[in-house]
Amino acid sequence: MVKNISRKSWSTITIFVVLALVPPVAHAFDNSFLITMFNRAVIYAVAAVGLDLIIGFGGMVSFGHAAFFGIGAYTAGILGTHAFDGSDFIFGWTGSNDAFVVWPLAMLVAAFFGLIIGLISLRTSGVYFIMITLAFAQLFYFFFVSLSQYGGEDGLSLWDRNAIPGLDLYDRNTFYYLCCAILLAVWFLLSRLVGSRFGRVIIGCKQNERRMRALGYDPLLYKLTAFCISAAIGGLAGALIANHSEFVSPGLLHWSRSGELMVIVILGGLGTLVGPIYGALALFLMEESLVSFTEHWQVILGPVLILVVVFFRGGIVGFLSGAGKATVKSGGDHG
């Protein structure tokens, strides 16, 4: 985990430079769709970096992360709807359009449900945990499908993007760079976190929970905290995607979305934090280029995923840091 620090920071610098260059390049080629597409990837990367915290460092394979994504998006969507038409949301509060209110709230709501889901599912592990998180996500999926006052199956339009004083979030570049800044902040905070005392505890829990208990730690407490942090980041990403597409629907919580987030993490490099950013870009670029060949692009994407899993361990970042397969076997040669 401490290996190749310099190479890893190079891969981090590179990816953010690339992200920063997207708008000027897009304008040069007069292709503003490029910004929209990259913006989507950046938002998914935010959620995926958060997911990497629990899968890559905490060993909690959550197959239900789309739930938090959707919960965050619906928080923005529902509050925005009430703010738009001035109707009552709860206790006479008519919602809000203020990003400084909506986004933290999206995180808080997602973390709250993360707490409940985590409390039940974290008492299990392995395959159980995978299936249970998937089932919980499905619970929320059906909840939003049946939430007819907020569009039910058809979803809900966000009439106004959230507002930040001094920024025009309708401006493509502004919103894009804002999302990039958030991604950078999330990446940076989590990088600090995994190197902190707390980080060492959750990494220890991933490796040997029984030993951690013998050392005086209650794993559930730390895993639950990490799970909630990850859920909150998922909620934030959800609020961003709601603003990006100006629309929320149960599709955001579909189980395949959870799968997609996991794919992004693995494709980019598990347990690297920067990997998921690469993963998101790779997945979206792959999608876009495959779509231009055939509408049945998933018939190609599926086997590609299988090949990645079987032959390309370590993901893109593992490949870039020159380690690839070898890291798994001989990590101690720097000692």
């Binding site: 799968g259 996991m262 794919v263 599926g302 899993v309």
Partner: peptide, 8 residues
Amino acid sequence: VLATFGLI
């Protein structure tokens, strides 16, 4: 999970 997701 990932490989069989690809299969799906």
